[in-house]
C-alpha cells in the first residue's frame, strides 16, 4: 500500500488530515509529523525511522507546505536515499484528497503525477 506523510510546523499537518477526514472519511495510510521540536538531523532521523519501520516498499509520498523550508529539506535528503519516496511541496487539501481518493487506483509513479496535477488544479483565482 502506498502511504503518505505530511510534515509541518505546528498543527498544520493534523488539521489537514482532520479536514480531509470530514470530506473523504478515514484514511489509514496518511501519517503526520510535527517538525517544531526537531532540528534538521533529528527530523531526518525520524523520517528514516518511519520508513524503515513501516514497510513502505510500495512507496511513500511526503507532502510539505513550503519548497525550500526546513521540512522540505529533510524530506528532500531522505528522498535521495530512497527510490520509492517522493516529495511534493505546496501542500493543499486538493493534493491530499487526491492521494486519499486515488492511491489505490494508480501505480506509485503515476500517482505522483496525478496528485501534482490535482493539487495545482486546486489553485485558482476567480
Amino acid at each position: 500500500m502506498v502511504r503518505c506523510l505530511l510534515i509541518s510546523h505546528g498543527n498544520i499537518a493534523p488539521a489537514f488530515v482532520e479536514a480531509s477526514r470530514r470530506i473523504a472519511g478515514e484514511c489509514e495510510n496518511v501519517f503526520t509529523l510535527n517538525c517544531d521540536a526537531l532540528g534538521p538531523t533529528r527530523l531526518q532521523e525520524r523520517i528514516a525511522h518511519l520508513i524503515e519501520s513501516s514497510h513502505l516498499e510500495d512507496g511513500l509520498f511526503i507532502l510539505v507546505s513550503l519548497r525550500g523550508g526546513s521540512c522540505w529539506h529533510a524530506a528532500a535528503k531522505i528522498a535521495r536515499e530512497h527510490e520509492r519516496v517522493k516529495v511534493i511541496s505546496g501542500l493543499n487539501l486538493s493534493l491530499l484528497l487526491s492521494f486519499i481518493t486515488k492511491h489505490k487506483k494508480y501505480r506509485f509513479e503515476e500517482l505522483g503525477e496525478v496528485m501534482l496535477a490535482d493539487g495545482i488544479r486546486g489553485i485558482s483565482h476567480l
Partner: peptide, 10 residues
C-alpha cells in the same frame, strides 16, 4: 545552521 529555509526565503 539550517542555511536556506523558510525564514530566509520567505
Amino acid at each position: 545552521d539550517r542555511f536556506i529555509h523558510g525564514q530566509v526565503v520567505v
